[in-house]
Structure formats: structure tokens, C-alpha cells
Design a protein around this nucleic acid. Sequence first.
DNA 1: ACTCTATGTTATATATTTTTTACATGATGT
DNA 2: ACATCATGTAAAAAATATATAACATAGAGT
Lengths: 70, 70
Amino acid sequence: MASTRIVNNIRTLRFLAGEMTQADLGARIGMTRQTIAAIEAGKYSPTLEAAFRIAQVFGKTLDEVFQWEG
Amino acid sequence: MASTRIVNNIRTLRFLAGEMTQADLGARIGMTRQTIAAIEAGKYSPTLEAAFRIAQVFGKTLDEVFQWEG
DNA sequence: ACTCTATGTTATATATTTTTTACATGATGT
DNA sequence: ACATCATGTAAAAAATATATAACATAGAGT
């Protein structure tokens, strides 16, 4: 359960995108709502490919969506 | 063996960083040289956390190191 | 020719992410 | 009160990433 040191603003981005739901986001990128929830909660860090797909939905770069607390 | 659609310039960055070796890079971020080799070759996409560590070694942002062929 | 060093590659094991299924709760609407 | 919807959460299975160990090759240096 190694909670990651990566934070993200997916929640905010969903809100700004017309209150897009976790399920909607998941459906758009072929991922379940549970996985979206876990990533938002920082339970584990997604695959780079998953991260790219998420960022693309919001038209953002990776670094705009995810930040690393080195 | 689902080869990923993510490309990277780790190889170039290693070269520019004084021909840093795969083993050196791996040691710096706690990863084996085999894993570095596989990532360079695009055999699979790294974890977002692994990607952050790699980018940090070269002082680059994620998007400068990894690009997505959407 | 020999010895290093860096890299490629493969097979197997371990760790981590993601899916699937299921149940729970709070908010909203009828 | 009831139904619906978004979210939280958890356990087990499936998929994927990473480690470890081993063997191979090509290049540089002696």
C-alpha cells in the first residue's frame, strides 16, 4: 500500500469540465471509475500511458495534471 | 507484450549527460539496467513515479522526456 | 588473444496497477 | 419513503511493470 508522493488535480479538472463524473472520465479513456477514484486519492501512481490519456481528455500536459513531491 | 505508443529520448539524454550509462541511470533512481533498457526500447510504459524520477535526473519535465503518439 | 564495459535479450519470479464484483453512504429528485 | 446517481471502499483475480539471474555480442584497451 505504498501511498505515492504524486499529487494531481484531476478532481478540479473534472469540475471545470462541467462536473465530468469519474465514470465518464473512466469511460473516455477505457478505465474503470474505481481506478480513477484510486488515482485521484493517490493510492497508487498510474502507468505513464494512463496518465497521458487522462491529461489528453482535459487538453493539458502531463506536468499540468500531475506534480511530484520529490 | 503490448508494445506501448510512448516514445522517449532517454538515450539522447544519457548521451548528453556525459554518456551516462544505463546502469548508472538505474542506480540513481533505484531501478535495474534491464528495466531502463526495456523502457528505452519502449517495451512497456513506466509507472508515472518512475517517469518522474527519470526526468528529474536530467532536470527535465515529463513532457520533455516522454511523448505520446496518441 | 584476452579482458573489460555497455548493451541486448530471455526466462522466471515478484511487485504493482487495474479490473471486476459487491456493498455502503450521502445527495437529489419524485 | 423511494429511487437514482456519484462516490467511497474492499477483496480477489487479471494484467502489466519491475527485479533477478543468466547468457550473448560488439567495442575499447592492454
